[in-house]
Design a binder for these strands. Sequence first.
DNA 1: CCAGAATTCAACCTGTTGGTTGAATTTTAC
DNA 2: GTAAAATTCAACCAACAGGTTGAATTCTGG
Lengths: 124, 124
Amino acid sequence: MATQATPPDLDQTLMALADPTRRAILHRLSEGEMRVTALARPFAMSLNAVSKHIRMLERARLVRRRRAGREHLLSLTPEPLDAAAAWIAEHRALWTARLDALDAMLKAEDRAGTKTPEKKGGAR
Amino acid sequence: MATQATPPDLDQTLMALADPTRRAILHRLSEGEMRVTALARPFAMSLNAVSKHIRMLERARLVRRRRAGREHLLSLTPEPLDAAAAWIAEHRALWTARLDALDAMLKAEDRAGTKTPEKKGGAR
DNA sequence: CCAGAATTCAACCTGTTGGTTGAATTTTAC
DNA sequence: GTAAAATTCAACCAACAGGTTGAATTCTGG
């Protein structure tokens, strides 16, 4: 019964994406490399807070850091999104299909049930 | 400059998915309605812990609860996955395209630079 | 050399996750 | 009516998220 080994990378990616500030950071970074200070400017929070968000994005490997002297240039590395998108799409399809199958089965059973009320419960 | 209103629903959906136990719960639920106890059995944690995960999944509207006497029947409602999948897919495409464009631009600039090192100011 | 800029580090606070155990609640079954 | 089943509620705990402020670090430029 395969323990379905769910990758911890997916945890980190989804967790990183589950915050509007971090999504906004990624969005800004899609326009190119940017320093921490520049990146932080539009947000209504301290530089330190943004720095922490960046650290979390790095941990999820959605952002890469390149030091150039005293400034740290951040850039977007969207690869982890592939896995996340794939996981969600795949499971959405699988689950929807299963639920549809169940629904069809229930409807069929119901039709049969009204004719031969045996099996379980019958009408309610 | 549209404040890009990031929906809090997305936060909850992604947060809910960012945990292996909760993903496993959803997976089991794709096989049909199940009681809390039955759902909790395979997990190496207390019933209460699973109950809390379920509550979080309900908050994200990924799971619906139907009370039938003393038992609560949980079922999967995969709709919120649509929004999550759409958001990720859309941004992945947009961001990748932007990064590609940036890259192409940099390469072109580089080629131009090595051939005709004039542009402005001339020699250095 | 030295002031200042760009960052992080460290400590702290508050709220939430993720887990526990034990008691309450509601419903079924004898 | 009462025991037991299926759940949650309540209190607690450790860890972490998300934020703050203040001090340290590391570079740059006059």
